[in-house]
């Protein structure tokens, strides 16, 4: 016969779902119940085996694209077909003005540009295809940083944030507008974060964020470098990484 606790409270304890008082009570019980102690050990073995086996299966990149493409189109503007020509002309004029002003702003704000965001997302997607993620795979910042030397005309800041939940996985070269840039790869739970870095002559700029094709991005400039972090993890995660890097 097994101790009744091994089928109930033990699991709440294992999962960290007991309140402090019940957890303490169970720990006291463990001291006098070899059966529960053995069962807990077995459960911990099983759990770490499940973790080690990496059973989590992530969605294929193509599926993400397919879904995005099949999301029903935006609300049709059918009603506007009844507009007289003059309104169309004024609408076009406003659109042109907005586009021009927007373009000027975009020049000042880097990745705010949707096209650039799209390029970064494409670069992120490319990196997820087999064998493209890292050119130098290492969790050691002192391996990754020197690797960039001689391959770039600038020196990107490379730091590991494993203690904060963003372990460094490696680095890679990428190309943006014909210029070779650095890509740092971080892990975030099951997600991959690409941080693209390239030099800029613009002034520092506070982080700006957005999403494209379901990917979050955060872009900022600091100390003559522009940074753009991209991932399918949450916006909050990216903000946290942004703060870590800019510290």
């Amino acid at each position: 016969m097994s101790c009744e606790h091994s089928n109930t409270v033990l699991h709440g304890y294992l999962d960290g779902e007991l309140d402090a008082a019940r957890a303490l009570e169970f720990e006291r019980h463990l001291e006098s119940c070899p059966e529960c102690l053995a069962a807990l050990e077995a459960q911990e073995t099983l759990r770490s085996a499940l973790q080690r086996a990496q059973l989590y299966e992530t969605a294929p990149v193509a599926l993400r694209r397919k879904i995005r493409a099949s999301l029903p189109a935006l609300r049709p503007v059918a009603f506007s077909f009844r507009w007289p020509l003059v309104r169309w002309v004024s609408l076009a004029a406003v659109a042109l003005l907005v586009a021009f002003v927007g373009w000027r702003m975009i020049r000042n704000y880097g990745v705010e540009n949707q096209y650039q965001a799209a390029e970064m997302v494409d670069a992120h997607l490319r990196s997820l295809q087999a064998g493209h993620l890292t050119d130098v795979a290492s969790t050691d910042q002192h391996t990754v940083k020197p690797w960039f030397d001689g391959k770039l005309d600038f020196s990107p800041p490379v730091r590991d944030f494993a203690n904060d939940g963003f372990p460094l996985q490696g680095g890679r070269l990428d190309v943006l507008h014909g210029r070779t840039i650095a890509a740092l790869v971080y892990g975030r739970r099951k997600h991959v974060v690409n941080v693209f870095v390239w030099p800029t002559s613009e002034r520092d700029a506070a982080p700006r964020s957005g999403s494209h094709l379901g990917y979050q991005w955060v872009d900022w400039r600091q100390g003559g470098m522009e940074f753009c972090a991209i991932s399918d993890t949450s916006a909050a995660d990216l903000d946290q990484l942004q703060r870590l890097i800019s510290q």
């Binding site: 989590y56 299966e57 992530t58 969605a59 294929p60 599926l63 993400r64 879904i67 995005r68 099951k190 997600h191 999403s211 094709l213 379901g214 990917y215 979050q216 399918d232 993890t233 949450s234 916006a235």
Partner: peptide, 13 residues
């Protein structure tokens, strides 16, 4: 796209 689509991996898994 910001709230739901990022959980595609969870959905697929």
């Amino acid at each position: 796209e910001q709230l739901v689509l990022p959980h595609l991996d969870a959905a697929f898994n």
